[in-house]
């Protein structure tokens, strides 16, 4: 193994991705709070943006995040059927099904953008999902598709 690859490997080991997380106010944000109250530990990779509903998340927010150099994106809402706004998460689900295909077409690795559901009662689940998302993004490495702006 050359010195260079060794160094690269070391960087990869230490490297922590930066993931932006859009959480709906009523379920997932509350679930994230519950993870805190219950002191369930997860990697410090996410930065949370609170939105009223996963339906609020415009696909452009996700594209813009990737363009700005975030290594990963998480969008989390209420479980289907439980939306505080009746159908917002269903609208979101349909929208993101299409976006996922578009992103693949762009050449963005599928694991960079993760959609998930976590209820206000699921602190443990929230932490698990973040661990999972972190692992996936970490394996993909830094987001090099777009030039970082900072």
């Amino acid at each position: 193994m050359t010195l260079q690859t060794k160094q690269e490997e070391k960087i990869n080991e230490e490297w922590e991705p930066k993931i932006i997380a859009f959480l709906c106010n009523w379920c997932s944000y509350a679930g994230a709070d519950l993870a805190g109250v219950s002191r369930i530990q997860y990697p410090p990779t996410i930065r949370v943006v609170r939105v009223p509903c996963s339906g609020r998340v415009n696909p452009y927010f996700i594209i813009k995040s990737l363009m700005d150099g975030w290594d990963g994106v998480v969008v989390s809402g209420c479980h289907p059927g439980d939306c505080h706004y009746l159908t917002g998460n269903l609208v979101a689900r349909r929208r993101f099904a299409i976006l996922k295909e578009l992103l693949e077409f762009f050449g963005i690795e599928p694991g960079r953008v993760n959609f998930m559901w976590a209820s206000a009662a699921e602190g443990e689940r929230f932490a698990t999902l973040i661990k999972k998302a972190t692992k996936i993004v970490k394996n993909l490495g830094p987001n090099k598709k777009f030039e970082k702006k900072w």
């Binding site: 339906g55 609020r56 998340v57 706004y85 159908t87 609208v91 979101a92 929208r95």
Partner: peptide
Amino acid sequence: KGCGACSGN
């Protein structure tokens, strides 16, 4: 109610 489903779309 301000859910934003309209805006997201």
